[in-house]
Amino acid sequence: MQFNVKLFAYFRDNRFKERLSEYPEGTTVEDVIRSLDIDLEEVGVLMINSRHCTLQQEPQEGDQLAIFPVVGGG
């Protein structure tokens, strides 16, 4: 199964902006984050296909998973 992972802010440092990869069925958002060696505590916002999601959610074929650190502005 393939889905797209997008990283933002300093999560991109030494990683990537966006990458389409192959994942086993049943991969959770948390699995993806751990595989990227991102500290779970630093994760602020997660979205699949522009909707907020949980760590336990399983992205599907062709999904867009966006991972943001804790950020704010205004």
């Binding site: 997008k6 933002f8 802010a9 300093y10 630093e42 602020g44 916002v45 979205m47 522009s50 966006a66 943001f68 650190p69 804790v70 950020v71 704010g72 502005g73 205004g74």
Partner: peptide
């Protein structure tokens, strides 16, 4: 506060990508 730290690095403009992603 982690948001304070992000604001110092990217400014408020860090929001472009997240608000865009949220549609």
């Amino acid at each position: 506060n982690p948001i304070t730290q992000a604001l110092a690095q990217y400014g408020t403009n860090v929001l472009v990508n997240i608000i865009n992603e949220a549609g």
